[in-house]
Design a protein around this nucleic acid. Structure first.
Length: 466
RNA sequence: GGCGGCGUAGCCAAGUGGCAAGGCGAGGGACUGCAAAUCCCUUAUUCCCCGGUUCGAAUCCGGGCGCCGCCUCCA
């Protein structure tokens, strides 16, 4: 398995049997939008794929539950910040479930790590990498010569940029806060520098090192976090330990809307749960996984509708094939074709987790199976194709839904209508026969007439989340 | 301005040195009572443009053009 690392700017082999992976999680001040969901979906799929390949993955994804935005939201609502954080933490897990994302192995909260963050900051102060000013603690970028190695930025040019707000407490405009002195009405914790709260960037480092140890095998997040967030993480972590912080840095591309990044501040966003409710979990996953994770991806209704149709097409094959009896042999040539497609699927994923190429291979399985049937191939071959497709797609969280079943009376009534329609067709009463077909379709029962008679499938309703 | 990335058919999108995956859509044909589903054919002699390297380039190199992200909180 090779993955493109932002740090080395090339493909890196993932060597270890146990993969310790850290993914930047949400700040819980509001519901996540569909763009926020991209890393959650993609890196969860990566995790599951690695697991399916026999690796053990420890997936840590933090929850930032102390932050300016949470405090602001709490102020607006007139409730304590902890209440805002608790509420949106719960909603975050609910959204993950709706997106078909497995919960991470560990979901540490920043507020549970404050004492360890204090310890960590003390170490940086002792080593001369951080300094204290009026209860604030800042990291001194000048003491870390490799600063900029992740983002490719050069210190002098950054300083020349001068877009950074001038804070006269800092020795250098690029220095960043490790600890912020407490202000009235804000959450605070005790520290050697007085009461306060941890600054940005520190929680990820402390939680990752505490749970996973260094170096991490994988550190992942959106590419908008490369600078300054991940750059600052590297600076702190490596200044404190003197060791490499993470081997492979993965960054997903942004979700855009008409070419512009989806962002709360731009107002061009949709809540993840609303999109899931409209198009279904699998259409959303298919939409994301149909595009290389590092590239930008444009969100639109048309794109989601297309994904949904593509998913329905695959299920149309799966559900029909699985209803067939075991009968006949799998033709040798077909068996070979399936093997080669399976190989292609793995080859694509092994090359920087090319889910789009891998999905192409899955679609080719469907096409190959249809051609087999057209050529009069036995049901066993079709069932084998369906089984392979399901097995391969499992780590991607796609195509695992069982055919919806009509139970008991409903099943018998559908069967009765199908028989009734067959009789009407024999009598050439097509008007009434077609009426039955149309009405059943409206109820989600799709009829497929074939040489051996009519089969029916239940459609649609199960493809929504929940 | 600096750093990073992108530009492949009507649309979406893989592929990154050896005949251009896949999906959606469109047109024609087969099947059907008509449809749906499915199959076959057609929809990129060509991969933003211009040069170069090579027996051979969408893929490598040089130079343009266009778009986006980061440089401030941001998945």
């Amino acid at each position: 398995m090779q993955l493109y690392s932002t740090l080395s700017r090339r493909l890196e082999e993932l060597l270890t049997d146990t993969v310790r992976m850290y993914v930047c999680g949400p700040t819980v001040y509001d519901l996540i939008h569909i763009g926020n969901a991209r890393p959650f979906i993609v890196f969860d799929a990566l995790r599951r794929y690695l697991e399916s390949q026999g690796k053990k993955v420890i997936h840590v994804q933090n929850i930032t539950d102390v932050d300016d935005k949470i405090i602001n939201r709490a102020r607006e609502e007139g409730v304590p910040p902890s209440q805002v954080a608790a509420r949106y933490t719960e909603e975050y897990f609910r959204d993950l479930e709706g997106l078909g994302v497995n919960p991470p192995t560990h979901s540490p909260k920043a507020t549970e790590y404050v004492p360890k963050m204090v310890e960590f900051i003390e170490k940086l102060v002792e080593k001369g990498h951080a300094y204290v000013v009026e209860g604030d603690v800042y990291f001194s970028v000048a003491t870390f010569p490799e600063y900029g190695k992740l983002s490719g930025k050069v210190l002098e040019e950054l300083e020349a940029g001068a877009r950074i707000a001038v804070d006269e407490k800092k020795r250098d405009p690029l220095d960043f806060a490790l600890w912020k002195a407490g202000r009235p009405g804000e959450p605070k914790w005790p520290s050697p520098w007085g009461e306060g709260r941890p600054g940005w960037h520190t929680e990820c480092v402390v939680m990752a090192m505490d749970i996973l140890g260094v170096p991490l095998d994988i550190h992942a997040g959106g590419n908008d976090l490369i600078f300054p967030h991940h750059e600052n993480e590297i600076a702190q972590a490596e200044a404190a330990t003197g060791e490499e912080f993470a081997r492979i840095w993965l960054h997903n591309g942004m979700l855009t809307v008409r070419g512009e990044k989806m962002a709360k501040s731009l107002g061009n966003f949709s809540y993840a749960r609303d999109v899931v409710a409209e198009y279904g979990t699998e259409a959303v996953r298919y939409f994301y996984l149909s595009r290389a994770y590092r590239k930008p991806l444009d969100f639109s209704e048309a794109a989601l509708r297309e994904a949904k149709r593509a998913v329905e097409g695959v299920y149309g094959f799966l559900w029909e094939a699985e209803a067939l009896p075991e009968e006949g042999e799998i033709p040798e040539a077909f068996s070979l074709e399936l093997s080669s497609l399976e190989e292609k699927f793995h080859a694509r994923l092994s090359d920087d987790f090319d889910t789009a190429g891998a999905i192409g291979a899955l679609q080719e399985i469907v096409g190959a199976a249809h051609r087999l049937r057209q050529a009069g191939g036995g049901p066993t071959g079709l069932r084998a194709a369906a089984a392979l497709l399901r097995r391969l797609a499992q780590p991607l969280g796609l195509f695992q839904t069982a055919p919806p079943q009509a139970k008991g009376l409903a099943e018998e009534l559908i069967q009765l209508l199908v028989e009734l329609r067959a009789a009407l067709r024999r009598e050439r009463n097509f008007a009434l026969a077609d009426h039955i077909r149309t009405r059943l379709a409206e109820l989600g029962v799709e009829l497929r007439d074939g040489p051996e008679g009519t089969i029916w499938l239940l459609r649609g309703r199960n493809q929504k989340a929940g």
